[in-house]
Amino acid sequence: MTRKQRRTMFLTTGFACFAVATVLVLFALEDKVTFFYSPSDLVAEPVAPDLRIRLGGLVVDGSVMKLSDGITTTFVLTDGAAEVPVSYTGVLPDLFREGQGIIANGSFPDAAGPFVADEVLAKHDENYMPTEVADALKEAGHWQEEPEP
């Protein structure tokens, strides 16, 4: 085998390996490697009590309530199909607001009660614009809530 033939063979094997790996990854992503649960996932299959999970979704408009202790907040998360009530004690990130996509880390202490979060992370989208532009867009009816994945 000459050097050229060897090189061709090596390159072919190398590319074949990369191709196989890509196919494997694509197959894997088909099933979606979840970083967090959505409310629908939880409705479809409730998780065990006290199992720590991440819960992601949009904060339902008008659901945010501050409790009388001043630091506990309750709200409802939705993904459009299902809703899960959440309670969180602590300082919320500045981006936390109604309609915002957030991720809550925590667990269900009991099957019936709300999801108790010990950490709330705001997931912002990839859109950046000045306030006036956002208002104008909303007014013109071009505004689209980001569909939560």
Partner: peptide, 9 residues
């Protein structure tokens, strides 16, 4: 201008 969501951050 500040961002509609994030403000000056």
């Amino acid at each position: 201008p500040p961002d509609y969501q994030q403000g000056d951050t």
